[in-house]
Write a protein that binds this DNA or RNA. Structure first.
Lengths: 220, 220
DNA sequence: ACCTGAACACCGTTCAAGT
DNA sequence: ACCTGAACACCGTTCAAGT
């Protein structure tokens, strides 16, 4: 197996043939537009006017290619402009920024999750949160517990949300399911609400606000 | 395209050839053991001593097959024995039960998520929660908001957790990443904690407890 | 150092034909 | 009603060979 070029050896090279950068660029475009499933080594090669094996030389295989795609995406997720005056509203602004960035690129989010790269992808989120929690006066274990709670909840919402149109047939949507449930012991008002489609952003907002307020105000 | 047999037409049939049930059984076993990626129509056929096209007659395609696999899994997720005396501890016992069921079958959980069937899979969780929140005195919108918060958070944790061994190379694990971060503005105690691996179950426990307590005690 | 061609071992799916 | 065979249009990856 030939050693693929690493980013750390830029090594001047004549302007002929294909570069690692061009390959990743094209792969990002395909994944962003049509999802991970649409990225094939052969299609990508054809689109670049080359041959699959050339890609192997530069990148090393489909998995490495996907990792490179995710890395490019992660680099574009810049830390948010933190907004708000109270600690709670500042933390919420960070959470919202990441939800928004991810929901603008659902297919890249899916790729990151599929390759197990969530920790990397959400690192900028974590750093911003760490600063904010420190500024809010949280220290040590209290701070790390709060941070991990927020990070997992935000990541969880993001990962649940990336499925742009639901894959499943209509009857599997949550609202439909609630139509046929045994209602014994369930408040009728609650049941009526559950038969309406959920507003994902509203749930995100409500959940995060409740959680962050509790984490920042509960005594240690 | 021939009409695949539906579950609602059991239709007595001689004991020859393969049945839909046998196909789904075998598929569940493969997915459970080796993941969605290892389920191929051809391998499955060979293992059943038949030919791929026979499977198409009974099921209709790979996607329908996966949906059937998930349906089987969902049917096995029985509602929990609810435990505890306070509303908070009872709700937590439900959440834990679902996290445990899912983490015993990470590959089936992945399949459900991949097919966009989370709403179906977590329906028993939702029903149990709806009863418990009603019993705790929550009504109408207040109850539905609390329920959706809990459901999304539990689902999010579950979906984040199913990646049994992290796919990514070692340097992408969260602890490693924190070793190289600009520490300005971050509490040293917090930073030290973040450089240790996270205890997933502890984060789940802490997050859920904080959230559920806040949701059940905050005034409407 | 980089690219090519041929080959291997797979896929999902369709369709006409059999019993 | 159910199964078979052949065929189509794909895959990822390896490897020896070229320049």
């Amino acid at each position: 197996m030939p050693e693929p070029r690493t980013t750390s050896t830029p090594s001047r090279r004549p302007a002929r043939g294909i570069t690692r950068e061009q390959i990743v660029d094209a792969a990002v475009a395909i994944v962003e537009a049509d999802g991970v499933g649409s990225l094939s080594m052969r299609k990508l090669a054809t689109q670049l006017g080359t041959v699959p094996t050339a890609i192997y030389w530069h990148i090393g295989g489909r998995e490495q290619l996907l990792d490179a795609v995710v890395e490019r995406f992660t680099d574009r997720l810049v830390a948010a402009q933190v907004r708000g005056r109270t600690p709670v509203s500042r933390v919420l602004s960070i959470a919202r920024h990441f939800r928004d960035s991810a929901s603008e690129h659902p297919n890249l989010t899916e790729a990151a999750n599929e390759r197990g790269l969530n920790a990397t992808t959400f690192l900028p989120l974590q750093i911003a949160l760490a600063r904010e929690l420190t500024a809010a006066g949280l220290r040590g274990r209290r701070a790390s517990e709060a941070m991990r709670s927020i990070v997992y909840v935000v990541s969880g919402f993001i990962v649940l949300a990336y499925r742009v149109p639901p894959v499943a047939p209509t009857r599997h949507r949550s609202e439909e399911l609630w139509a046929e449930i045994d209602a014994a012991g369930i408040d009728p008002g609650l049941l009526a609400d559950l038969r309406e489609p959920a507003d994902f952003d509203a749930v995100f907002e409500h959940t995060l606000r409740t959680l962050v307020e509790a984490l920042l105000t509960t005594p240690a």
